[in-house]
Computed example of a mutant assay.
Amino acid sequence: MIEAAMIWNEPNNKSHWDPELDPDWAIFADTVIRAAGSIRAMNPAITRVLGGMSPIDPAWVQRMEKHGALDAVDVIAVHGFPLDWNLWSIHDWPQKVAEIEAVTHKPVWVTECGVGSFGAEEVQVFGIDKTAELLLPRVPRVFWYSLFDLPMSWGATTRHREAEGSSYYRHFYMGLIREDGTPKPSLERYARVANEMGLMQWFHFEDPRLDEAVAWMKRLGTKRLRTGLSWADSFRPGAIDWFDRQMEALADFDVTVTFCFTPEHLGVAPHHTSPARDPQGFADFCAWMIDRYAPARGLAAPAAAPALEQA
């Protein structure tokens, strides 16, 4: 079920990793090396992906290489939203991929791309058609963000929030399906490429949309899904029951699972974007999740939580 494990999400973006606490990304690189080693030890067949960068930045990739992090992963991932947040044209997608290929021999995946319907739903229709045209022949994996609009009452995971102006509110219009459950015109266009283009859908803790998402993806013919399992959520009451339910529901898809979010009590600062005081704790969480949901020797009894998680 799990074909790939992504180590963190958008680590060169302040909304997901605090550069004031790790200005050279040296702690992050150590975190990647430890996590990748733990994942490989549990199941060497799992593809290890360096958390999708946003913005797309060749200099950041070179920094990771100097820290030794690229030696620990199999794939480099990028995220792009040229009609919503990035300052480049949607037609530049092949060029943006090439910029990363020029500084690494690792394969490049596009693990988040999307166009929102904030301005007009017709723009999203154009966006999915053009993205498919430009990227599906170009890279091995493409994941569209996202299936569902983010409910306005949930808030977006960003450090800037309303200070972003209209950019903040675009977070709530990236789905193919509206908050009320009705499909947008772009859903039908996605269905045309669903067997090639995966979906990226975050499921919040005990997300009530899980079963509906699975039903939609099967109806659409989606083969691949990228989602996440949160280290921070692993400390919530009932976390393992929720993780088990989520992963069981997604068993029919090829899943790229993203491991991220620091528990507040284990961070250098009490925030999910903070580096951990002990990066090995995150590596242990990754090992636990892989051993539980993608054991190397087929069916096996679920692994026990590492001692840190039981605290």
Rank of each mutant, 00 (worst) to 15 (best):
I2D: 09
E3F: 15
M6N: 13
M6H: 11
I7C: 09
N12F: 12
N12M: 14
N13M: 09
S15P: 01
H16C: 06
P19I: 05
P23G: 07
I27M: 12
F28P: 09
V32K: 07
G37E: 08
R40M: 01
R40I: 06
N43T: 13
R48N: 10
S54Q: 09
R63S: 10
M64I: 08
E65Y: 03
G68M: 05
A69Q: 11
I76M: 14
I76Q: 14
D84C: 01
L87M: 10
I90V: 11
I100G: 02
A102F: 07
A102C: 03
V103Y: 05
T104P: 07
K106C: 08
K106W: 03
V110P: 02
C113I: 15
G127R: 11
L136G: 05
L136A: 02
S146Q: 11
S146C: 10
D149P: 01
P151G: 00
R159L: 00
H160A: 14
H160W: 08
R161E: 08
G165I: 00
Y168M: 01
Y169Q: 04
M174R: 10
I177K: 07
G181D: 01
P183A: 10
P185N: 03
L187I: 06
Y190M: 02
Y190A: 03
V193W: 06
E196A: 14
E196M: 11
W202F: 11
F203C: 07
L210A: 04
E212D: 10
W216D: 13
G221I: 11
K223V: 13
K223Q: 10
R224E: 11
R226C: 05
T227Q: 05
W231C: 10
D233M: 08
P237C: 00
A239N: 05
Q246P: 00
F253R: 06
V255N: 08
T256D: 04
T258F: 04
C260F: 14
V268G: 00
T273K: 11
F285C: 04
F285L: 05
W288R: 07
R292N: 00
A294P: 12
R297Y: 15
A300I: 01
A300S: 14
A301P: 09
P302K: 12
A305V: 06
A305G: 11
P306T: 14
Q310W: 13
